[in-house]
Amino acid sequence: MSVVFLKEYEENGFKVTEYTRDGETVSHTIREAIITEPIEPPVPVEPKPTLEELQTQLLLNTEYLVTTSELSKLTNKNGE
């Protein structure tokens, strides 16, 4: 014997769907929460850099500034 839809209604914030095998009595019930608010997608969280990564970035930035300063001095000397 198969299960067929009997009725559907709302109760206490749930959608209740009832199924029957004999056409009269409820044999199965499914309760689904009714969501009235839109669900927002989760915001991706960027991992924070480690202390080692921060130190490495600081070293690279310092080396870059020193190199550009030295190149600037060389350019000024050659231009005079």
Rank of each mutant, 00 (worst) to 15 (best):
E8C: 02
E8L: 01
Y9Q: 04
Y9M: 03
Y9G: 00
E10C: 02
E10Y: 03
E10L: 06
E11I: 03
E11A: 09
E11M: 10
N12M: 08
N12H: 12
G13L: 07
G13H: 11
G13V: 07
F14R: 14
F14G: 00
F14I: 03
V16Y: 03
T17R: 06
T17E: 07
T17N: 04
T17I: 13
E18N: 08
E18I: 02
E18K: 00
Y19A: 02
T20G: 00
T20F: 01
T20S: 12
R21Q: 10
R21T: 08
D22W: 07
D22Q: 05
D22Y: 04
D22A: 05
D22G: 02
G23K: 02
G23Q: 01
E24R: 13
E24Y: 11
T25M: 11
T25F: 14
T25D: 08
V26E: 03
S27M: 01
S27G: 06
H28L: 14
H28I: 14
T29N: 01
T29G: 04
I30P: 00
I30R: 10
R31Q: 14
R31H: 10
E32D: 13
A33H: 04
I34D: 03
I34C: 07
I34G: 05
I35A: 10
I35V: 15
I35E: 06
T36H: 10
E37I: 06
E37W: 13
E37L: 11
P38E: 14
P38N: 07
I39A: 04
I39P: 01
I39Y: 05
E40P: 00
P41E: 14
P42A: 09
P42R: 13
V43Q: 12
P44N: 10
P44C: 06
V45R: 11
V45D: 05
V45Q: 15
E46W: 08
E46V: 15
E46H: 10
P47E: 08
P47H: 03
K48Y: 03
K48F: 02
K48M: 06
K48R: 12
P49G: 08
T50D: 01
L51A: 13
L51Y: 09
E52R: 13
E53V: 04
E53R: 06
E53T: 04
E53N: 04
E53S: 09
L54D: 03
L54Q: 14
L54I: 12
T56M: 10
T56D: 13
Q57N: 07
L58C: 10
L58T: 11
L59G: 03
L59E: 12
L60G: 01
L60A: 11
N61M: 10
T62P: 01
T62N: 11
E63A: 13
Y64C: 07
Y64S: 11
Y64N: 05
L65V: 05
V66C: 07
V66I: 15
T67I: 07
T67V: 05
T68W: 01
S69C: 14
S69P: 00
E70M: 09
E70H: 03
L71W: 10
L71A: 12
S72R: 15
L74K: 12
L74G: 07
L74E: 11
T75V: 15
